[in-house]
Structure formats: structure tokens, C-alpha cells
Design a protein around this nucleic acid. Structure first.
Lengths: 328, 328
DNA sequence: ACAGGTAATGTAATCGTTTACACTCTCGCC
DNA sequence: GGCGAGAGTGTAAACGATTACATTACCTGT
């Protein structure tokens, strides 16, 4: 492998000069610069990033820690983060925690050992609550899920309002027996449940049912099936994430329940399928691109200026009314 | 930061001994080992992976280079790769090329500079053809798309057979005017087109239409809309990847074409939505989990034994017959 | 003509590991 | 009793960059 020494030798200068030419951080005589660049091109030299990292005590990598990249929300975020990172010459280490706090901690340690410049992180519920006891060794930006600490940069959705709006939409369209299915793995589910309850309260109604369940398609299916099997059915189902929505939709179909005339269905997150099924699903769309990008930018800001006062960016979802929630 | 020196001092031994204890690769007196481990625990020491990488000239990272992680096929692969890597203590750098050869090369260089242990790679068409001129500086496993070189490990689907089987399925169910939409960015589209044509030939039919287009939802939509607007419509549409399928499905819906009675639709890859829409889509499901896992394992084998003779694993897709291709 | 500033470059320390080599000790064997 | 083998450990040289400090050469103002 050709190293900086080879270049130095070829150009007849010292390694320091080569480094200076490449980093462009010192005055260099034009003629010398040219000789060096020529040697670099000649030898097809590429600086070793590992060595650079070791010396500089940081690397041009960031970690992305989420529960599961297969969740369409995180897939989109992941892509946005990677794009934003790429533009700054950074690369992204992908970590899936499966909502498992042990895996979470392991990955955080790993990323630390890798000297990553920072981490974009969607923590589990358990981690969220103990977050302030975690002495952050790296720059952090938390996304999607609130944490207690006021020391951390965050990019969040205004979940309570969004859920409120979505619930109101159901109520305004005449639905009264609302069942809510909320993910139990994150703070997000709780916040959305709060908006759900608040809207009902404003209508002086009680929730028909409300369950916290594991955010997976299967659990969404099972919970919905149970709701539909009961003697007294809800007339609308509110789901707090797209996996639950998918499960619920499947159950409705299998039970041959007509949507939205018998039971309405609403949820969160734009997905490929939400618009393809019939009826298409009314959702709160999250600005995933913007979330990922903002989080990455916030992270870079913190990397540059570690003492900057923490910033929380709260983005708004947009209600996309489709056929699944309007009695036509 | 606590380094190996601190541990050595605390344990009253040399850094070499500490290293040996941790790497477990040399005889160490039990009592010494214990003292060292105690110091490690005491100081909460964690070895710096960058330094280790520099010295060892390789890292415990692998690159994953695909066109777009948002393609459900690659999402699933990505997760499988990450899982398999995790089990071996490796982490995964995610790279999206957008089918852009320049980005592709840039990423490959980057990964090389990062000293990754190897790369799992789904190359663009352009790259595929010039692959053997690329002097592989790193262990490689190519997935999803064939390359010319016989020097490379690959994990592929038997695309020709799969497409043949899928086409035969249409023919056996009475469809005769088959239109094919194939992705133009990879060898995969070509191979699937070959299977498509072969089946038609065996039925002594000509393809009704066949187009190579950019593998995106929008292009799938447009191409399908054009097919449906023509005076003479096909009675079945064959798509070579899930993005095209989604676009085609959307167009069929917007044009209020009944599936499968007026036009059938078949495609590749299991997706969340394929089963949720009505009718559900007949597809060739790829064993994504197995592809990702096999690729990762192959990569580790090559990392361990760089001179091993190259291996190509060809996996089979499974035809999942659903409502979109059976006149009931 | 000389002090002092600055541009341009070189020398060598440094980042935190691993490991080749050297050394000491103990044991067993002839 | 001497000698070779191996166990157990230390010393110091890598790995490939960056950069503090030193050095040289040149220019400028008085």
C-alpha cells in the first residue's frame, strides 16, 4: 500500500509537506504543491482514514441507532441521514436494536470504541428514562422519541397534536366508538395516546378501548381481530404506527369488515402500501426526509461546537385524509 | 480516555501483557491475568478500535453497497446482513449508490480507505461489465446482480428460471398478451426478461410488449398507463421488481382496470403491501434473509481465507400465487 | 546593515494498539 | 551439572497519518 512516505519520497519533500498540501492548511509554494499533487496522482495515493482518525481522535463516521431499519419510517430516515452525511463526507454505521436495551448499550459502546463523530439515536423506552444517567461520551441527536434530559439535541414530531388532529378527524366524521392501538416500546406511543385521549375528552367521550401492545404487524393483527370478534365492535381504529396499521388492515380484511363504512382505520406514517390498498389509509404523514436531514445537521453542529446549548426541533405531521376514514 | 497504558500501570505489568490478556492469544499466568482483568474492570477500559485497526491493517467493519436501501428487497437484505455481521462482532456501513456509477466508485474507495474487512455489493450495470478491470483491493461478495468476473463470490437468484416460472404461471392461466416491464439498471432485469421471453417462446408466442425502464415507481406507473391507453391492451403485466409493480398497480387502479379479470399483474419480491392490496399480488418471493446471511457468511470466509476459490451461490425464488393472476 | 517578521519546509513526537524480538526462569533429561 | 525447551513477561518498533516545534531563507523598514 502506498503511504504518505512514498508520496513524500517521490515528490522529494517531507511527509509533513505532503500532509499540508493535502489538508490545505498551511502556506505552500505553488511549485511544491504541484510536485506533491503530481506524485499523489502518479502513485494513486489515498490517505488512510484509520491513521487519520487515530491521530485526530475522531472519524468521519456517524452511527444510526434505531429499532429496526425495516420499519418504513426508519428506512426513510436512514436514507435521509445517509444522504446528508454523504454530502459532508461522512459515512453511516447502521445499528438495529430490536427495542432491546442490551443491544442498544452494546451498540453505543461499539460506536464509542469506533470513535464515531456522533450518533443519531432513537432510544427504547427504558433507555429514554435513564438517559440522563448516561454520561454521553459522544455527540448525540435523539430522534422520534423524547428523552427526559434537557441536555440533548432532539428532532421530534409534535405527537400529541398530531394524534389529536387525527382523532378529531375521526370524531368530526361521525365516528364515536374509537379504539386505540399504541406501541408500547417507545415514548411515541404514549404521546400519541395522550393526543387521542385529549381529543376524546374534548368531545366528552370515553375511549372505546385503548391498548398498548408490541409494535409489530402480528400484534396489530391479533389486537384488531380481538376487537372485531367482540360483541360490541368499535367503529374506528386508531393505530400509532405503520406496523400496527398494517396488522389492523389485514385483520379487517380477513374478517371481511368493510372500511370505512363499518369500521374506519387511521394511522401514522406514509408507506408505499397506504395509498395502494383500498380504501387508501388516512394517516398523519411524518416529514421523514426533513427529520433525517435536520437530525444530521444538528449533529454536525454539535460536533463542531460541543458546548452549544441543546436544541429541540419539533416538526409537524400533516394529515392526509384518504378513503379509510370517510363514510362516503 | 483510559488507554492500555493506564491499565498496564494499574495492574503493574507491561502494555504487551495487557494486550495479550485481552486478545487471549498467548500464555499468561492465571494470577497476572486476573490482576489485568481487574484493572480493566476498575478503569472501565475499552480498547480503541481505531488503533487496533491501524495496527492490524483491517477493521471489524463491512460495507453494504446497494442502490437504495428504501427498496424493500435491499431493506430486508440490509437487515439480514447487519444481523449476521453483528453476530461476528462486525458492524455495517450503509452506502446508497442510486445506480450511479460515480457514487459507486466513490463509496468503494471510501470503504477501502476505511480499511473495511470486506464489502457486500450490488453493482450497477456499468460496473458489472467492467468488473474484471477493477482490481479488487478488498474481499467482495456480489449480490442480486451477476458480474462477468469468475473471480468473485456471488449470491444470486436463479432469475431466468424464476421469471420463466412466473411467466408460465400466467400462460397456464390463460393469459396471452403479456407485457413485460424490466428494470434497466441492473443485470437482473435482463435475466428476468430472458426467462420471460423463453417461456413465451415455449408457448410459441411473441411478447405483446417489452420495455426496459428505470426501476422506479413513477416509471412503472407511466409505462403501465401507456400500455392501458393503447387501443390494444395487454391482458397481463409482468414486472421485474417491486417498485415497478407498485407503479403498475397504481396505474391499474387509477385507470379503473379490474385485476385480474381484465389485466393480470405479477412481479418480484415480497413486500408488506403485496398482500394487503386487493387483489394481492402474485410474486416470486426472494429469500432475502437467506441471501443476506449467505452473502455475509461467504464474505467472512473470504476474509479468513483470501485465496479460497470463488463460490457462487444460486438461490431459488418461490412462486406465491395470489389473486392478481388468476381469473376466478 | 541589522532586527524582526513571515513564508516555506523539515524533524520528530504523537495517537493506542499489536507483536517481533529479547530476556529470564523453571523444568526435565542425559 | 549443563543444556534445550518452553512458559511468562518486558522493550520497543511498527501501523500511517497530523502537527508542535525548529529551522532556514527571504524581505522590509529604519
Amino acid at each position: 500500500m502506498t503511504s504518505i512516505k512514498d508520496v513524500a519520497k517521490a515528490a522529494g519533500v517531507s511527509t509533513a509537506t505532503v500532509s499540508r498540501v493535502l489538508a490545505n492548511n498551511a502556506p505552500i509554494k505553488a511549485e511544491t504543491r504541484e510536485r506533491v499533487l503530481e506524485a499523489v496522482a502518479q502513485l494513486n495515493y489515498r490517505p488512510n482514514l484509520i491513521a487519520r482518525s487515530l491521530r485526530a481522535q475522531k472519524s468521519a463516521k456517524i452511527g444510526l441507532v434505531v429499532s429496526d431499519i425495516r420499519n418504513p419510517f426508519f428506512t426513510a430516515i436512514g436514507r435521509a441521514v445517509e444522504d446528508a452525511a454523504y454530502e459532508q463526507g461522512y459515512s453511516v454505521l447502521m445499528c438495529n436494536t430490536d427495542e432491546n436495551p442490551e443491544k442498544e448499550e452494546l451498540y453505543l459502546n461499539l460506536l464509542h470504541d469506533e470513535n464515531v463523530a456522533g450518533v443519531i439515536f432513537s432510544p427504547t423506552q427504558q433507555f429514554s428514562t435513564s438517559f440522563n444517567t448516561y454520561d454521553a461520551k459522544m455527540p448525540f441527536v435523539v430522534i422520534d422519541r423524547a428523552v427526559d434530559s434537557k441536555e440533548t439535541d432532539m428532532v421530534l414530531l409534535d405527537n400529541v397534536s398530531a394524534a389529536y388532529e387525527l382523532t378529531m378527524h375521526l370524531l368530526e366524521n361521525g365516528y364515536r366508538k374509537l379504539a386505540g392501538l399504541f406501541g408500547d416500546a417507545s415514548t411515541t406511543g404514549q404521546e400519541r395516546s395522550r393526543g387521542f385521549h385529549r381529543a376524546l375528552k374534548d368531545y366528552q367521550l370515553n375511549p372505546f378501548e385503548a391498548h398498548f401492545i408490541s409494535p409489530r404487524i402480528k400484534q396489530g393483527y391479533d389486537a384488531t381481530a380481538a376487537l372485531l370478534d367482540a360483541a360490541n365492535r368499535p367503529d374506528a381504529i386508531f393505530t400509532s404506527n405503520s406496523l400496527l396499521t398494517a396488522g389492523a388492515f389485514q385483520a379487517l380484511r380477513d374478517k371481511k369488515v368493510s372500511v370505512p363504512s363499518e369500521v374506519a382505520l387511521v394511522g401514522f406514517d406514509e408507506t408505499t402500501w397506504g395509498d395502494l390498498v383500498s380504501p387508501p389509509i388516512t394517516v398523519i404523514a411524518q416529514p421523514t426526509e426533513e427529520i433525517g436531514r435536520t437530525a444530521t445537521e444538528l449533529l454536525f453542529q454539535r460536533i463542531q461546537e460541543p458546548t452549544r446549548s441543546p436544541k429541540t426541533v419539533i416538526l409537524k405531521g400533516t394529515l392526509q385524509v384518504k378513503g379509510s376514514s370517510i363514510k362516503s
